[in-house]
Design a binder for these strands. Sequence first.
DNA 1: AGAATAGTTGTAAACGTTTGCAATTTATGA
DNA 2: TCATAAATTGCAAACGTTTACAACTATTCT
Lengths: 333, 333
Amino acid sequence: MRKQDITIYDVAREAKVSMATVSRVVNGNTNVRKDTRERVMKVINRLHYQPNAVAQGLASKRTTTVGLIVPDLTNLYFAELSKGIDDIALLYKYNIIITSIENRLMREDQAIQGLLNKQVDGVIYMSDNLPEEAIEAFKRTDTPVVLAGTKDSHSEFPSVAIDYQKADTEALNLLYNDGRRNLALVLGNPDTVVSAENRIPAYKKFMADHGLGEGHIYTNIKDHSDGYNLLSQLEQDGIDGVIVSRDVTAVGILNSAIDAGKKVPEDLEIITANATQIASVVRPALTAIRQPLYDIGAVAMRMLTKLMNNEEVPEKQIELSYEILKKQSTTNE
Amino acid sequence: MRKQDITIYDVAREAKVSMATVSRVVNGNTNVRKDTRERVMKVINRLHYQPNAVAQGLASKRTTTVGLIVPDLTNLYFAELSKGIDDIALLYKYNIIITSIENRLMREDQAIQGLLNKQVDGVIYMSDNLPEEAIEAFKRTDTPVVLAGTKDSHSEFPSVAIDYQKADTEALNLLYNDGRRNLALVLGNPDTVVSAENRIPAYKKFMADHGLGEGHIYTNIKDHSDGYNLLSQLEQDGIDGVIVSRDVTAVGILNSAIDAGKKVPEDLEIITANATQIASVVRPALTAIRQPLYDIGAVAMRMLTKLMNNEEVPEKQIELSYEILKKQSTTNE
DNA sequence: AGAATAGTTGTAAACGTTTGCAATTTATGA
DNA sequence: TCATAAATTGCAAACGTTTACAACTATTCT
């Protein structure tokens, strides 16, 4: 194995300085005389010396690595968040260890612990649900954590997200103004913070405020086929306008409606609460709450860099602005 | 900071053994007497000792970390590959450092070097193009590399993919049998190994074999809007059947056709060569070459685990079988 | 019982850096 | 020119493990 054949010692010897000086040159420490620096640099280049990040991590207790916890890599919602994170991470020279936590052989707290054992300098957590076990795991450590695209119940953790209640209310209002009165809410997991403490209360309040009765909340509708199969139930319940938490699910409902010979938006208006690429490529294109996913990821990562440097972070609960993107799945006045 | 307050020393002291013994217990070494093991385990649990993976990595020269090089996280093609990789990585207890290399501030070889400096035990490379600089970077090291969903020109690197030539030929044949004669090929980057050495030759051969003339190859058509805008050109060239390398691009063509009042498949048949979720949720659903993306990722990662353990790997160029999934964008006989 | 062997444990040297501190060199000021 | 301060360098101790190797203990065999 010649995995790491040349070390800081080799450079030191060749450049006739101590390893401490080489270390200073490598780390851009200013306390090195110009010609010494140049001599060392020359040797570094000649030998193609590259510092061993593991040894650096052990000695300095900083690994320049952050952990990303994500439910599902193939969900574009998380992929777009990740892209924002990744770009900022690159900018600040952090690497990313990604851990997905859905359908796992490993419990979530074990996954987190594994990340912490790798001595990541910080963690970004993206699941829309932060279970107690995860909270406990995080609390056992000093490693800073930022939530991206989600919130926790007690605002214990810094987070970057949007105002879900406001967004949902605005979306419901759009349907209402289109004359729809039988409004439904379609959710995946109803027990997440976003569902339980934001979307559901907003929906209930809206229905009550407008005298629309109890309404209908459908839960555990998680993917395209769940959405597809839900349509008959929606018909049965006389739903004419629906907010769907995930866009693939919304597309399932949409396709089901089309296949059943129904017209969207005439017979059913659909708004998705999480717009990814998919929402815009289907036809009719889905009206959506457009969360600035890339920005959420980028801002979260930027905040994390500050926390990792013990810099001051005045505002720890950041809400970015969203947009209601009117497309073809709602009436165009 | 109490990041890692208890070390193997603390456990050793409490359990009245040497750190070597604790290390053996932690690593499941069998050369420890049963009651000693239990005593140590008890202390480990009481103190919540967790080994520091960085120190382990330095001492053992194995980091149980693999690097993933991917062009774009938000491209479902790579996300689905990654999922297969991730699942097998979890099974074998590897963590994944993910590095995306498109539109970067960093050159590709620097990204690779960064991964190697972190002492990853292996690398999976997923871009459909392996530039010379990347090859050089890999050759400077002993770290094993496996290509997933792509191949290199000289088969220097182990790879897991499908037979692109055969798949494309079969797809072209499907169009031909549907009576289409003005067949086109729509590509992103034409200079990748997959394009230049597989898809284009297969296309040219097919056209020649069937006396269909030169044909039309459209290049640098990379996303939905590129596809959308390409339609007029396709019309102008009288194309009636097209193979599209990426499915979002295919959807762009499809949507453009629909918006222009054309009928798919009647006026234009479309086959995508890379089916992700998107190909199946649009309407009409796209006929596709379905690559077993998850499996490609999983097999690639499994092969990598063997290489990392210096196990025998008899077959280093693996081709998995694909499937032509007939949907609504080609004629249903 | 004693020798040979197998099983268990400890000692200490790596692994490749960073970094506080001391030592040395150079610059500054009177 | 010499004392003093500032800048530069080196020394050596961390960082928290793993792992030869040696040393010791328990077991087996004759």
